[in-house]
């Protein structure tokens, strides 16, 4: 009697869990290899062409040239359309390619490109880009692509960005537990903050 009851309650719970999982998650949030879902963007933006190595046909543009808010704000942000146009209006060679034509269509209609989020965190987590960029890029002189890559992976090899890391709490903590040098010249090290309220506030 006891066992049956216990089993039945557990079973109901499991059925609930399975069904709600199926209903909510059309695409698994994190696959076995930690990749995020493939995100379809209005324009298939080639990160490799803009930020990739020169040897591979990339322009080696600094991440922060476009994602200019990363060092100033908690979010990295998407550059305003005027930034894309600012360069592309004088790059005649690709002016007639489908993606750039589409870009100029948005510009002429004065409509913002409806980019989708690729990296999102739950609403109860507060991640601050500014702190990380100031720390790694400006205090420790780490290369920008390396610093961004800690969380975003090797974006310069991708076209449309796709999440590479789990961005789970355990994954964040695994890095925060490591000792990092305080700045570029110091031998003093410290680890990242591990107070709950640093992220959950």
């Amino acid at each position: 009697m006891y066992c049956f009851l216990r089993l039945s309650v557990l079973l109901v719970g499991l059925i609930f869990s399975a069904s709600s999982y199926a209903a909510n998650a059309v695409q698994p949030l994190t696959t076995a290899d930690d990749l995020g879902p493939k995100v379809e963007q209005p324009i298939e933006f080639p990160h490799d062409r803009h930020a990739g190595d020169a040897a591979k046909g990339g322009m080696q543009i600094n991440c922060m040239y476009c994602h200019t808010y990363a060092r100033r704000s908690i979010v990295a942000g998407i550059p305003p359309l005027q930034k894309c146009i600012g360069c592309h209006q004088s790059i005649e060679s690709v002016r007639e390619t489908p993606r750039i034509k589409k870009l100029f269509e948005y510009w002429e209609a004065k409509k913002a490109v409806p980019w989708k989020k690729v990296h999102d965190l739950p609403d109860f987590v507060r991640f601050n880009h500014e702190r990380h960029i100031q720390r790694f890029v400006f205090a420790q002189n780490k290369p920008v692509q390396e610093a961004c890559g800690y969380c975003h992976g090797d974006v310069k090899t991708m076209t449309v960005a796709r999440r590479q890391k789990p961005l789970s709490m355990g994954w964040c903590v695994s890095c925060h537990q490591k000792d990092h040098p305080v700045d570029a010249t110091s031998t003093k090290t410290t680890h990242g903050p591990n107070d709950c309220w640093q992220c959950h506030k």
Partner: peptide, 11 residues
């Protein structure tokens, strides 16, 4: 991820 839009501006 992939559902919400990012705030982006024209200018």
């Amino acid at each position: 991820d992939g559902k919400e839009f990012v705030t982006s501006y024209v200018q």
